[in-house]
Design a binder for these strands. Structure first.
Lengths: 126, 126
DNA sequence: AAAATACTTAAGTATTTGCTTGACTATAAA
DNA sequence: TTTATAGTCAAGCAAATACTTAAGTATTTT
């Protein structure tokens, strides 16, 4: 029970990180939400400013913003009656890291591709 | 008509790039497909090898692979009766670039945030 | 030649998603 | 104080999505 604390901690942290990555990539999977992130990376905007060029109701934009906010890609703050939205760079960094890690893996193993293919051949002949 | 050729060319290329990014982020939006990419970045695998640890039928895995292949994240090649799947690094690079561009924008504008806020205040007072 | 393997294809289904409408609240402006 | 603005909330809906099942084909293995 006691000795497992550290391992459980790791497992939990890994799972949470996975859940975060899940939310981030799910959020980025929609073109409207990516367009929102694109515009917000240039400057903070209010909800109605964001909605203006988007061919949908304000309510729909708010729903996209909720998803973006839960994913940590966007942070919003309400002052008076206007909610200002801005990009939270941590979310983008997490996504970038995930991709970089895969690419690093790929490159690491791509270097010894010939070697791997040779081993596969040996394996197939057995 | 003639003078527009170059502009149309740019527009078309930009749209195609956008469509590619669309397909890539849509593909990465699903956790199963990300798991597939994770495993394939370590080593190439056959369809049934991929399906083994996934809690779904082989047919479902094939459907995910079709999406991954159309997005350019994965390349597959059939030799005999086995289809071997591997990561195509170009797809990951495209996604990484999109993110890096947003982050670059964000950093560029974040640096003069104070300045922007001051201007906003002036604007609000007019 | 027969059986097993490794997919392929098509059709159907439950769930999720992106969106709308409409009625509401809170803040600011006239 | 009325009126306009900015956003909120909940319900409902059509289309997309992630599956399943079942019946195929092509290639190995025995």
């Amino acid at each position: 029970m006691r000795g497992n604390t550290r391992h459980a901690g790791f497992a939990t942290r890994a799972a949470q990180r996975g859940a975060a990555i899940d939310r981030i990539f799910h959020a980025l999977g929609d073109p409207t939400r990516r367009a929102i992130v694109e515009r917000l990376s240039e400057r903070p905007l209010s909800v109605s400013q964001l909605a203006l060029p988007l061919q949908m109701t304000l309510a729909a934009v708010v729903q996209h913003l909720e998803i973006l906010e839960r994913s940590g890609l966007v942070r919003t703050e309400k002052v008076g009656r206007v909610r200002t939205c801005r990009v939270e760079s941590g979310g983008l960094s997490a996504a970038e890291s995930w991709i970089r890690e895969r690419r690093a893996m790929w490159e690491r193993h791509f270097d010894r591709l010939g070697e791997l293919l040779a081993e596969e051949e040996k394996g197939a002949k057995r």
